[in-house]
Design a protein around this nucleic acid. Structure first.
Lengths: 243, 243
DNA sequence: TCAAAAGTGTTATAGGTACACCCATGT
DNA sequence: ACATGGGTGTACCTATAACACTTTTGA
């Protein structure tokens, strides 16, 4: 039988059949955060099969033999939501030996931030249901998914400062207050209105429109749009919010 | 034959034999940076077997069936250097379908920064040699290791600002100039001496000693030590250098 | 006494923080 | 007229950057 002699251990007398190394698998788990009106949510599925039957879990799947990791993550996200072209990026790989009861399965966690309204209409017809959960009320999760969620939340806090993912959870035209609320909710702290605006306006990638809100029982707010090109330029030069 | 019906694709008629998912493997590749006197180096091995025989490559190995990912990374690093207890942390997982010519092998990249003097004495007796290479003169690398190296260098630049990994490449007692040089070399830019000192001293985790350099043909520099406890405290509160 | 690098001081400017105040709208 | 949130201005303080200057050693 063909064996694999670990290359780096010259004094190691034992050897492991190479087949043993190919008795493992890898999956992708998607941490899909949803933001809407000052609330941060997380998309969970309820498992319909063992192991962890009936537990809530992060949506995930084994990676197909001829499928790239990023592609697998996009596939899962596209199956769950009606959105397309959502950027979904790797967070970290979780690979403890005993993390999966049925064998050696490591999982690569991916992160996305979306508008929670956009859930796939066929979701309810699945054996396992799909549901948005408030981040303030997370049920017990299958596998090591709680740890994955915690790590991903920290990563979200970092990325919201560096990338334009907040853009996906705001309408095309939005107020500076809505913009501020996204950061306050996700980072979990409040900012001074005046100072926040001053800082944000000077970056010049929020473009003030001639329009304003209507039907509000207070002074209407001016609307802004996002200049993605200008943002990309600045990001290429190392831009990051310093909230 | 038992098959795996992808859970998330209800309309998907085809199914894949579950064995197919277990015909893959995962490896760990270590990006071991070395810093010494204003030079950044990278530890490479020369491959003794196909594929990519004779190519230089990042040191790596398949992960043992009952071995955690972090443990595998530490094992590889410990086999190559005489050091122990070196922190080595995950960077990213690389998993393109065609990245390995012999099958589906994804790899988890790990990053460490060490003092390059500490190379294992038995290294030269291996079939494949081990060598420090200057970052200014990297040979062609096997697999997608060049991409892994590039991504890891960026990660190193981020981590040097957030963690105390620079501590491992400085002597127990060091000068502020030595301290500054680490950052200048890794970040690739120069800092004003006076301003750098002012900023660093006020953080209070570098403790000034009563000692000074000897046998230098200029004014001797005062020596400092690192107060790791104080640094950890500050890090817990979100500290990061803003160079 | 000179070169070399250590170490300190000065100044102008920019930016952040806290807070007060006025504005436009619906009820 | 008043409650509500939008929007702006100011004054203080701290941080930063650029640069000049002094100090201590070995040769």
């Amino acid at each position: 039988m063909k064996t694999y002699q670990p290359r780096l251990l010259q004094d190691d007398l034992y050897s492991i059949p190479i087949d043993e190394f190919f008795k493992s698998a890898f999956s992708v788990d998607c941490v899909i955060f949803g933001y809407h009106e000052c609330e941060l949510k997380i998309l969970l599925i309820q498992r319909g099969t063992e192991p962890y039957e009936n537990y809530w879990a992060l949506p995930g799947d084994l990676v197909y033999p001829n499928e790239d990791l990023d592609t697998a993550a996009s596939r899962i996200l596209n199956d769950l939501t009606t959105l397309t072209n959502i950027p979904i990026k790797q967070v970290k790989t979780f690979g403890k030996v005993d993390r999966h009861p049925l064998g050696r399965v490591i999982t690569i966690a991916y992160l996305a931030l979306v508008e929670p309204a956009d859930l796939a209409p066929h979701a309810s017809s699945w054996a396992s249901q799909t549901q948005w959960h408030s981040m303030n009320d997370i049920p017990q999760l299958a596998f090591d998914h709680r740890e994955i969620l915690d790590v991903s939340l920290e990563e979200l806090k970092t990325r919201i400062l560096q990338e334009d993912i907040w853009h996906r959870v705001l309408p095309e035209k939005f107020t500076l207050t809505q913009f501020q609320e996204v950061f306050e909710t996700i980072l979990g702290k409040a900012f001074d209105k005046g100072n926040f605006r001053k800082k944000v306006v000077k970056y010049k990638f929020l473009r003030k429109l001639a329009e304003a809100q209507t039907n509000v029982s207070h002074r209407p707010s001016l609307l802004y749009t996002f200049d993605a090109n200008r943002f990309q330029e600045m990001k290429a030069n190392g831009f990051s919010f310093d909230f």
